[in-house]
Design a protein around this nucleic acid. Structure first.
Length: 706
DNA sequence: AGTCTCACG
DNA sequence: ACGTACGTGAGACTC
């Protein structure tokens, strides 16, 4: 099978990107997670077999002692619960929806929602950019088919040229927002949303701080990460057997598309109220499953409380120095242009170095350079490692191409693109974090992606210097040192690795020493580099091919390294086998905190697919546990900072790093608070025998802080 | 829309 | 014999 097909199938099997994301903490810092784990019969998560045995039979309610409005829906007597579940299966009937056009009706809905104690909410806006869009309307659902749409700012399409008059039959936005605010901020009324973070951010800009909440997207993620997509339309079709009206059916797409605020009220109601209705039904469905499948603790301690934390980070944004980026764009343009001239000269003809097709023809067709490999589609591969090997052999053109690619990449992806993301109202860049886009629990960042800002070479670091603190403030970067290797030592229980971390040794040098018998003192850089690559390989679920490719050595040599490694660290092979076996049996693996990462295709008949899933599942326990740990730190950090009367604000997360903006005078007091929360993040749910280590420092820009 | 490449952890 | 190191998002090119 070709690789492209394979990746596609993996994407399907792992349930690729949910475009959506989600906020509020019903979990206080320091909540006893162990107690909850025990209540769900899964306190000992590390072992493998216990989980299935206990998770499927835990029908007990959560042992949470605090009053929890999220439980309210479950408190109904059995008869009522059955009635409710019957209604959930009721066919969706859009004719039952109401367009709320006056305050009397709005107040009636608000009263009923307040009385009931839970309500599904969905906001309609002019765009998907939560930091810039305008609110068009709000929909509510109280029960299946009992839903309404409250238009707040719809305009007449014909009137657009003359300024776009508001259509009649709707409530003034300011008035509507004022009326909804007490309901949405009522601590006794649970707000249910799909991707709550979006609605929360939009309404926050209109002065409403919604709380408390449940998020159907995150419930789905806690249950089905890696085996389903978590978008609402997907969830509805899968779990309710109902296909909702799609957004593009309403607004059209591409050139002819119409903004949602120009959709007529009847049509807008069908679409918007249905979304709230579907969200309500999904909540009922997931509520039962979360309890039955023992995933309440993961949802309540790792998913839901992170939402308001991320929303606040997104809301704050980060400052960039546009002058620096503009200057760099100029410099990069000049360098690229010079390189283009030299490239044409060397190639003997003008061509587009950005075209892999043209480049392949030149290098391997015209110039007949050796060592060409083909991509999945049969074209010449011109990837960096291929060009690097050619450059090593003394070929000038591949070297030039590499430089050109590097420079133009930095220019187009960063120095040219970032300034366009500065929000005109705030003057800052506001990324968006996706909570349910990876099978492992990691976040992702987009629009712009601030998790891949360059750092590995000098030109790239210049870009990082453009991320700056406000006047009188500094940026603090705090990152976990080698967290995944520490977790490998912990989870696989490898004595030498554990001891090395306890003694604060250079882990790659130690590995090299064990493997090649070279003393750590005076370790040659190249030997250490190889050991480092092997350590990374282990985390990735090593293969001889991968390692060979990474180190530009033969597959045989790579295989010999791996063999040697397993001889020195036999526990690692056992750990890998154990993980695979568990995954083949259950279709998922778990992190130390009980998160499930599904790899359903692990028993696929295609050996290549199987291998893929095996490596991914081995990696998922480490990557996923690290993701859980930093989530716990993020959830607690705000409380720790305010508790210490510090004004530091968290701005960014980059997988093992947190970035803060801190008043200059508070830096010294703030650093130890941050470090403590991060180091102690696993407690009290999990106590590690390997210490975590966090480096933190302050500077005027992100490069120097890191 | 799909492919390739490359930025990060 | 097979053929990829794990997890992302984005820009440019190709069709």
């Amino acid at each position: 099978m070709e690789f492209t097909t394979l990746t596609k199938r993996v994407a399907e099997a792992t349930g690729a990107n949910a475009e959506e994301i989600a906020p509020d903490p019903s979990l206080a810092p320091g909540d006893n997670v162990i107690g909850k784990l025990k209540a769900e019969g899964r306190a000992e998560i590390v072992g493998s077999e216990k989980i299935e045995a206990t998770s499927t039979k835990s029908h007990e309610r959560s042992a949470s002692t605090r009053t929890d409005p999220t439980q309210k829906g479950m408190l109904t007597p059995l008869g009522l619960a059955e009635e409710r579940s019957k209604r959930a299966k009721e066919k969706v009937d859009r004719s039952k929806y109401e367009t709320v056009g006056d305050l009397k009706r709005l107040d009636a809905w608000i009263a009923k929602a307040t009385d009931q104690g839970f309500v599904a909410v969905d906001t309609e806006t002019t765009s998907l950019d939560a930091m810039q869009c305008e609110l068009c309307g709000v929909s509510l659902a109280l029960a299946p088919n009992e839903a309404c749409y409250i238009p707040l700012a719809h305009r007449s399409a014909d009137d657009l040229l003359s300024g776009g008059g508001l259509v009649s039959g709707q409530i003034d936005r300011k008035v509507g927002v004022e009326r909804l605010k007490p309901l949405f901020e009522n601590p006794s009324v649970l707000k249910i949303a799909q991707n709550f973070k979006f609605d929360f951010l939009v309404l926050a800009r209109y002065g409403i701080e919604m709380s408390p909440f449940d998020d159907t997207m995150l419930m789905s993620y806690a249950l089905d990460a890696g085996r389903e997509r978590h978008g609402m339309d997907d969830l509805s079709e899968k779990h309710l057997g109902h296909k909702p009206i799609s957004f593009t059916e309403v607004t059209g797409k591409g050139k002819g598309s119409v903004c949602f605020d120009q959709i007529d009220l009847a049509r807008a109601t069908e679409y918007a109220a249905e979304d709230a209705d579907v969200t309500f039904r999904l909540w009922q469905y997931f509520k039962g499953r979360i309890t039955a499948e023992g995933m309440n603790t993961v949802y309540e301690t790792l998913e839901r409380p992170l939402v308001p934390v991320l929303a606040n980070m997104e809301r704050r944004g980060i400052s960039i120095d546009r002058a620096i980026l503009a200057r760099l764009s100029g410099e990069f343009a000049q360098i690229a242009s010079k390189l283009e001239q030299q490239i044409s000269k060397l190639a003997g003809e003008g061509f587009n170095p950005g075209s892999a097709k043209q480049l392949g023809d030149i290098l391997f067709g015209k110039m007949k350079l050796p060592g060409g490999t083909k991509t999945a589609t049969g074209a010449w591969s011109t990837r960096a490692n291929v060009l690097e090997d050619l450059a090593e052999e003394g070929h000038e053109l591949p070297k030039m191409i590499l430089e050109w690619r590097s420079i133009t990449k930095l220019k187009s992806t960063y120095t040219d693109a970032l300034p366009a993301f500065v929000n005109p109202q705030t003057g800052r860049v506001h990324t968006s974090y996706a909570l349910a886009s990876t099978p492992t629990g990691r976040l992702s960042s987009s629009d712009p992606n601030l998790q891949n800002i360059p750092i590995r070479n000098e030109e790239g670091r210049k870009i990082r210097r453009a991320f700056v603190a406000e006047k009188g403030m500094r940026l603090v970067s705090a990152d976990y040192s080698q967290i995944e290797l520490r977790l490998l030592a912990e989870i696989a229980d490898i004595p030498q690795l554990k001891k090395a971390f306890l003694d604060g040794l250079d882990i790659h040098a130690m590995t090299a020493s064990e493997m090649f018998g070279v003393p750590v003192k005076g370790m040659p850089a190249d030997i250490r580099r190889r050991a480092k690559a092997i350590n990374f390989g282990i985390i990735y679920g090593i293969s001889a091919f991968g390692l060979a490719n990474q180190l530009s050595i033969s597959r045989e040599e790579a295989g010999a390294y791996i063999k040697k490694y397993f001889e020195r660290f036999p526990g690692i092979r056992e750990y890998m086998e154990e993980t695979k076996t568990f995954c083949k049996k259950h279709g998922y693996v778990t992190t130390l905190f009980g998160r499930k990462c599904h790899y359903a295709a692990i028993n696929d008949s295609n050996p290549s697919m199987r291998g893929f899933m095996e490596r991914a599942s081995i990696n998922a326990r480490l990557q996923g546990t690290a993701a859980d740990i930093i989530r716990r730190a993020m959830i607690r950090i705000e409380g720790a900072l305010t508790g210490a009367k510090l004004k530091a604000k968290m701005l960014l997360q980059v997988h093992d790093e947190l970035v803060f903006e801190v008043p200059e005078k508070e830096v010294e007091k703030t650093l130890p608070v941050i470090v403590k929360v991060m180091v102690e993040a696993p407690l009290p749910a999990v106590s590690l025998s390997v210490p975590l280590h966090v480096d933190a420092r302050a500077a005027d820009n992100w490069d120097e802080a890191h």
